[in-house]
Design a binder for these strands. Structure first.
Length: 419
RNA sequence: GUGAGAGUAGCUCAGUCGGUAGAGCGCCGGAUUGUGGUUCCGGUGGUCGCGGGUUCGACCCCCGUCUCUCACCCCA
């Protein structure tokens, strides 16, 4: 038997109904905020991620599906989508068009990691990016949009964790202060944390070692080392969130794993996801576009882990998505009734009624059993009697009731019955 | 990449001391030749993940390997 590749999974019905409805909801919300969809390639030059996500980041140096194609090009399956969006933005001269560009995407991403709960080698992200807007109101509106989406999905009680990592200019001073503070603790630090202190000191703040976490309580905070402009940006963002009623928590130790973030960073975590509990993450990246050779352009965005989101989706939303699929079963009772059943099914579909045709003609017992099993809520029986009289039997499979309806009234009747 | 646990029927699982496998659910048929989910009766079900080793004999013990699960790492 040939099985799927490790870390890759099939999404099957009825789950795909939930995925589709989730994506539809996201598209609807995003367009309400003036975002347009962008689709970028799954395969990009490896160099793109080296320059954006960062050569030293784990994502790039040990998690990418990187290879040389038949033409000798060094390419990688995208491990995230912001870099691709920024690349397309520069490549297609979007800055020349002027103004602010608001884009969203939905699609698969790839990271070669050991699979575990909430983490797959192929996973999907729903994300949005705003390019060309530097003000804190943009950050605030992005978060407002996120909460709008999550509210429509039925979530309650979520809160966003927020921090500012400052600017390219102010960060070195902070890193020095942090290093100086941690020097005293280096002896008790684990191997992983010592490596992080060396390679990417900010990430030490993210440690899972309880002893070190306790020691970090007294560590210098990025927020106290912000340059004046970043500090003003951060404070205005908080004020705007306050005014918008968005629940947030400032987490001075929140840092992100991608090198391109500046100023605002945020994430939302959820219960029930195990160790991989980040539902979404994002932040501002004012240097990214210029690093990729474009004009100096501020940007901010987020990515939602769709696989994780589906895992914790509120039950009513999931239920509604699954129940929305309920075609009307049209069934031929005997083989001579097949043509009539086929014709009736066609007529109903032209009228916009979803029909699951069972033309088997093996008798109503068989057909009704199958229809119920496939999730149909209504069945229309076509037999010799019905063909003669032009009146068909319509059964409600849930209430187990039935009535007779003239064929001409059928489209209206069936549509009227549907919510 | 590291660590731990698990792979037996379509699904959930049992399988004693090593003697070549069982249950429930499902599925198919019948009771019911034009009316379903209950009930009853009958039937269908398996390279015991894969490869090797030990043994007269392996689902069981040993080695390897693959996959899954969880955690580390990392992150969505």
């Amino acid at each position: 038997m040939i099985t799927s590749v490790k870390g890759m999974r099939d999404l099957l019905p009825p789950d795909t109904r939930v995925w589709n409805r989730l994506e539809e909801t996201a598209r609807t919300v995003f367009s309400l905020y003036g975002y347009d969809e962008i689709r970028t390639p799954v395969l990009e030059p490896t160099e793109l991620f080296v320059r954006s996500v960062g050569e030293a980041s784990d994502i790039v140096h040990k998690e990418m599906y990187a290879f040389t194609d038949r033409g000798g090009r060094d390419v990688s399956l995208r491990p995230e989508n912001t870099a691709g969006v920024a690349r397309a933005y520069v490549e297609h001269q979007m800055p020349q068009a002027g103004g602010v560009k608001k884009l969203y995407y939905v699609g698969p991403q790839y990271r070669y990691e050991r699979p575990q709960k909430g983490r797959y080698r192929e996973f999907r992200q729903i994300g949005a990016e705003v390019l060309g807007a530097a003000d804190p109101a943009t950050d605030a509106e992005l978060l407002v949009m996120l909460f709008d989406l999550f509210t429509r999905l039925g979530f309650t009680g979520l809160s966003v964790s927020l921090n500012s990592v400052g600017s390219e200019e102010s960060r070195p001073a902070y890193v020095e202060a942090l290093r100086a503070y941690l020097a005293a603790h280096e002896g008790t630090m684990g191997e992983d944390d010592r490596r992080r202190l060396r390679e990417n000191p900010l990430r030490v703040l993210d440690t899972k070692d309880p002893a070190l976490a306790a020691a970090l309580a007294g560590a210098p905070r990025v927020l106290d080392h912000l340059d004046p402009a970043s500090k003003a940006h951060h404070e205005e963002l908080l004020a705007l969130l306050e005014a918008s009623g968005i629940p947030y928590r400032v987490e001075p130790r929140l840092v992100r794993g991608l090198d391109y973030y500046t100023r605002t960073v945020f994430e939302v975590t959820a219960q029930g996801l195990g160790a991989q509990d980040a539902l979404l993450g994002g932040g501002r990246y004012d240097r990214l576009v210029s690093d990729l050779g474009g004009p100096r352009t501020p940007g901010i965005g987020f990515a939602i882990g769709e696989d994780r989101l589906v895992d914790v989706l509120p039950e009513p939303f999931r239920r509604a998505a699954i129940d929305a699929f309920a075609p009307v079963a049209v069934m031929a009772i005997d083989p001579p009734d097949r043509a009539a059943a086929l014709a009736l099914a066609g007529e109903l579909r032209r009228a916009g009624v979803a029909v699951d045709l069972d033309p088997a003609g093996k008798g109503p017992g068989h057909a009704l059993k199958n229809a119920a099993k496939r999730g149909c809520r209504t069945a229309v029986l076509v037999g010799e009697k019905e063909r003669q009289s032009g009146v068909v039997v319509v059964k409600d499979l849930v209430e187990r009731s039935q009535r007779e309806v003239p064929i001409g009234d059928l489209p209206r009747t069936l549509k009227g019955e549907r919510p």
